[in-house]
Computed example of a mutant assay.
Amino acid sequence: MTGKQKEGAIRVVLVDDQTMIRQGLGYVIQMQSDMEVIGEASDGVEAVELIGALAPDVVLMDVQMPNKSGIEATREIMQQHPRTKVLILTTFDNHNYVVEGIRAGAVGYMLKDADSQEMLDLIRRAHQGEALFHTVTAAKALAEALQGQRETPDSTTTSPSVLLDELTDRELDVLQQIADGYRNDQIAQNLFISEGTVKTHVHRILQKMGVEDRTQAVAKALRHKIVK
Rank of each mutant, 00 (worst) to 15 (best):
I10Q: 01
D93Q: 06
L111Y: 06
I193D: 00
M35V: 04
A141Y: 01
T74K: 04
S42Y: 08
A41D: 10
A217N: 06
H81T: 11
R75Q: 09
V86C: 12
G210F: 04
D113L: 09
T90M: 07
V227R: 01
I21A: 07
V12N: 07
L164Q: 14
D43C: 07
L222V: 05
A9N: 11
E144S: 11
S155I: 15
I29C: 03
H127V: 04
M61G: 01
I21Y: 02
M31G: 14
A143G: 13
V28E: 15
D43N: 14
R103K: 14
R170F: 01
A138G: 15
K199N: 12
N184T: 11
Q149E: 05
R170T: 11
V28R: 03
Q117A: 09
A221Q: 00
L50N: 05
T200Q: 10
V202K: 04
I21G: 00
Y97Q: 12
H134V: 04
N67F: 13
G26S: 09
T200V: 10
M119P: 11
A131R: 14
K85T: 03
L89D: 04
F92Y: 15
D169A: 12
N190C: 06
I102L: 10
P160Q: 11
S161N: 14
L163V: 14
I38M: 08
N96S: 10
G105Y: 04
D62G: 01
V136Y: 02
N96V: 07
V99T: 09
G39K: 01
G70K: 00
D16I: 07
G39N: 05
Y97A: 03
F92S: 14
V15D: 06
N67D: 07
M31I: 00
M119A: 06
F192T: 13
V63C: 07
I102Y: 08
V136T: 13
A179E: 01
R124F: 02
Q64V: 06
E212D: 12
F133M: 03
T158K: 03
V198I: 05
D115E: 12
K228W: 11
L175I: 10
P66V: 14
E7I: 15
R223H: 10
L164V: 10
S42N: 05
R204Q: 03
E76S: 06
G8H: 10
F133N: 02
A47Q: 05
D43E: 12
G196L: 08
A145Q: 03
M119R: 00
A114H: 05
K112M: 08
M31C: 06
A188G: 08
D173T: 11
V59Q: 04
M61I: 02
E118G: 05
T157F: 07
